[in-house]
């Protein structure tokens, strides 16, 4: 039963359900945006920590 549904979805579309429906691009886009968000927030955290490290070092040599 499951097989039949999958088969139908995959074979009816041009390159299968995943690509044929065009949803693969949406998934890729969302994943990229999330990744970029994680990257930017980590980068900002990194900068902030560097600043704090410099400050704490200058206060207490």
């Amino acid at each position: 039963m499951k097989m039949a549904v999958i088969f139908h979805l995959l074979s009816s579309a041009m390159e299968g359900f995943f690509f044929g429906s065009g949803k693969a691009h949406v998934v890729t886009g969302v994943a990229l945006v999330i990744l970029l968000g994680i990257g930017v927030s980590l980068w900002r955290m990194d900068r902030r920590l560097s600043k704090m490290e410099r400050e704490s070092q200058s206060k207490n040599p």
Partner: peptide
């Protein structure tokens, strides 16, 4: 990013 693009676009 390369992994995401390649992973979701490779047939």
């Amino acid at each position: 990013a390369y992994v995401i693009v390649r992973g979701f676009s490779t047939p």
